[in-house]
């Protein structure tokens, strides 16, 4: 299982890009943390999610 924003999901084996494509996240508004490190945007399509990974997807809200 892969934990994303606190939710356990059965998506081990998918890449970050493949997972994001199943969501409503706007790729231009997000940053992705995986196991304590930021995932570079250029590596979303080659970063394969593994069993036990923990991710946080930060989706920025506008305003400031």
């Amino acid at each position: 299982m892969v934990k994303i924003n606190g939710e356990e999901l059965n998506i081990a084996g998918k890449t970050v890009a493949e997972y994001l494509a199943t969501t409503n996240y706007d790729p231009k508004r997000i940053a992705v943390e995986r196991n304590g490190d930021i995932v570079p945007k250029a590596q979303y399509s080659e970063t394969v999610l593994k069993d036990g990974d923990s991710l946080e997807i930060v989706s920025f809200a506008g305003g400031g």
């Binding site: 231009k28 508004r29 940053a31 570079p40 920025f60 506008g62 305003g63």
Partner: peptide, 26 residues
């Protein structure tokens, strides 16, 4: 204030400036 600008700066600093801290808002 712009969400895309927030994400751009966040990713750029964290990817390319590992010595700096980043404090962002959302």
């Amino acid at each position: 204030d712009n969400a895309e600008c927030k994400a751009m700066l966040t990713n750029l600093v964290l990817e390319t400036m590992p010595d700096k801290f980043l404090v962002a808002a959302s």
